[in-house]
Amino acid sequence: MNVISVDGLSKSYGTGTTQVKALHDVSFSIPQGQFVAVVGASGSGKSTLLHLLGGLDKPSGGYVHIDGDNLYGLKEKERAVFRRRKIGFIFQSYNLIPVLNVEENIQLPLLLDHRQPDKAYINDLIHTLGLHERRKHLPSELSGGQQQRVAIGRALAYRPAIVLADEPTGNLDSANGREVIDLLKLAVHQYHQTVVVITHDMNVAAEADRVLNLQDGKLISDTSSQGRLV
């Protein structure tokens, strides 16, 4: 089944002569368990697409279906709850609440949903992410790479169906960047999550199962995995 299904999606800003078309009639579907990279030059509409996939913004036209639900048919409050349970975000920077420590940041979506986290699971997760010594530290005391790992930890903690990452390696050096990508791949393989990554780094794109190429708001190529070749 297609976890993400985008149909004729468009988004424009402004009116009249100052109108900017960020997305123009984009359509694609993503099945579960795929690692998808979205590439394109600056201003090609990648971020806008991501925001719309996550229900952060309102499209000017078209539909976004996640797990069969029309995302923009829901009310604002319902969309918030939907996000809480089904979508995970990782941004290029500024992912974490500055006043909460590592552990609390990871648990945050669960707490918003009034659910008590499985302590053992979270513990393990923190261990695996190599954050054990820093679990009580505030984001201001962490390096960029560590902060991104916390963000990924958050995405793994409540296992949303989709993880949307906006240039997650943009602010990191290559070693940390590799780590982030490896972790995201793990999310796909181990936890059957679907990961959509925006990137301009071709190395990252190379790791993906599928690459969507945007230019000027239009989808110009969709290199998906083909069948096996002999």
Binding site: Y121, D124, L125, H127, T128, D182, L186, Q190
Partner: peptide, 10 residues
Amino acid sequence: SLPQHPFPVP
């Protein structure tokens, strides 16, 4: 890449 601490089994 091998995790130093194996990921929690789902």
